[in-house]
Design a binder for these strands. Structure first.
Lengths: 286, 286
DNA sequence: TATAATAATGACTAGCCAGTCAGTTGTCAA
DNA sequence: TTGACAACTGACTGGCTAGTCATTATTATA
């Protein structure tokens, strides 16, 4: 029975990377160091393995969420629920990747980047709307608000796909639009605790992050400087910016400056981008 | 060149039903009444067809949304946006089905029903929370609120899947949970225009789930019985299974049997499932 | 040590499918 | 009518994979 567990653990890694379909039984058995026959002693079919994996993880997550909800006081109920869901999800992050792999690698790289591309267009469109409507009143929360709008779009869109063709209900688009307008306005007005910050958005939006131009990095630096109060960190940032425009420090100094800002909450992306510029230390040697 | 269009139109139908991978070029050419060779005169590869389809539809939808936003007054901006998105989506509903097919039929029916099943558990859990927190103040809007919560979960969950392992940002779960709690409370308090009504929810939740659940629970029980050694717990499980197939015990007995297995490590999910069957105590009253 | 039972192996089968290409059919101008 | 060209055909290739099963290795038992 421990072989069964071995297969489940190892195959999960492969599935997470490649998706269910793109992972063959042969690959799994090779990765486990067992033969194909041995696999079929533990599982009747490949599908049985997949089902076992999903059940195992979903059972854990369901129970965890349920326990959190049952033990929480009314005051903490919602908090406990949300916290637990995301905590579980992160803990079993392989699982998330597995699900997404299934979406993504279903066809190929090209499809993935196409989807990113159109997602990006939508992001921009929503941001334009938000900025136009609420101006700089929601400067702090606008990215978060955009995520909410996207959340709504995603979820309510599913209602339009009745895979069971059974009841042919014509959905009331007017009501739907009014309902979501109301929600959006309410959130814009009353929500003051954003989760998706400008920073976070920058990190997560663009998978082709490596291609960020020098100019974009500088812009990002300037945006962050404005938000920071005078400090060693801010000065380090200023110096790094100057250095990026016109190299003048030795690698040791540059490295030190980066260390200064490494743990500042707003600078994570900047540090990341700088360190991932292949030429960063070598090119600025003088 | 009109052959190209023919292939695009016809293949879309097939893709929407079966997903990209489960639709072979042979099927497409048969459905179009042309030969395989003719297909490859219009498209270099199958993938080129898929990309052409996605581009064609996404361009239309993007342009439609963009035009709606550009021509709307500030007052109608959000409304126009939401309305247009869903309208486009419905108009090109084949496309939606196509995308979902890709998610769903990626492996098989079994996986699909499993996902539905766990989705349903989540729905119930969220409803429980909402009812407990806001009582009958939100009777009219509770299903809609549940959809919002699910929206948030879906969207924000994506942040946990950095397919690009690049910047290792540890997401702040506490902030995330607080942010979503705030949003949920705000919506519960101020949103009075629900879209998802009780009826709509009934229609759209998977109708087969009632049977599914029962069958799944029984299977789950059987699996667990095999693993257990003879004991009060095992006997209780056997009796509960019989009762589930054909009700014969009074609620008191059922409750007692459940208590017997409540703390057995393998039975937690079963207990949870049984207690969440709405009809569990009432239906078996005699 | 001998024998039986169990675990494990991997070559093999049968099936699917994207993409190819030698050959056929249709068209149209000379 | 003929010949040239384009459009079209579908049998075929090569590559991949889930699942099988005769055979071999290992372990337990007597």
């Amino acid at each position: 029975m421990e072989k069964r567990q071995l297969i489940m653990d190892k195959s999960m890694e492969l599935f997470a990377e490649q998706g269910f379909r793109n992972t063959s039984v042969q690959q799994i058995t090779d990765y486990c160091g067992i033969s194909k026959g041995a696999f079929y002693l533990s599982f009747k079919t490949k599908n049985e393995l997949i089902m076992a994996l999903i059940d195992s993880l979903m059972e854990k997550m369901t129970l965890e969420a349920d326990r959190a909800v049952k033990t929480a006081s009314d005051k903490d109920l919602l908090y406990a629920f949300y916290y637990q869901i995301f905590h579980s999800f992160r803990k079993h992050s392989v699982f998330g990747k597995l699900i997404v792999s299934e979406h993504m690698q279903s066809i190929n790289e090209e499809l993935v980047s196409k989807i990113y591309y159109y997602q990006n267009l939508l992001d921009k469109l929503i941001l334009t709307i938000i900025e136009r409507l609420y101006g700089n009143k929601i400067e702090k929360t606008k990215y978060d608000l955009m995520y909410c709008v996207k959340s709504f779009l995603g979820m309510y869109t599913e209602l339009f796909i009745s895979n069971n063709e059974l009841p042919d209900v014509e959905l009331d688009l007017d009501l739907l639009a009014r309902s979501l307008v109301e929600k959006t306005n309410i959130l814009a007005k009353h929500a003051f605790t954003p989760f998706v910050s400008h920073e976070l958005f920058q990190i997560y939006k663009n998978p082709t992050i490596g291609d960020m131009t020098q100019q974009q990095i500088i812009t990002l630096m300037e945006e962050n400087m404005e938000k920071m109060e005078d400090s060693i960190e801010k000065d380090s940032l200023i110096l790094l910016k100057q250095h990026l425009i016109e190299p003048k420090f030795s690698p040791a100094i540059v490295k030190g400056l980066i260390e200064n800002i490494r743990h500042h909450p707003n600078c994570k992306l900047i540090v990341y981008l700088l360190e991932n510029r292949g030429d960063f230390y070598s090119a600025y040697r003088y």
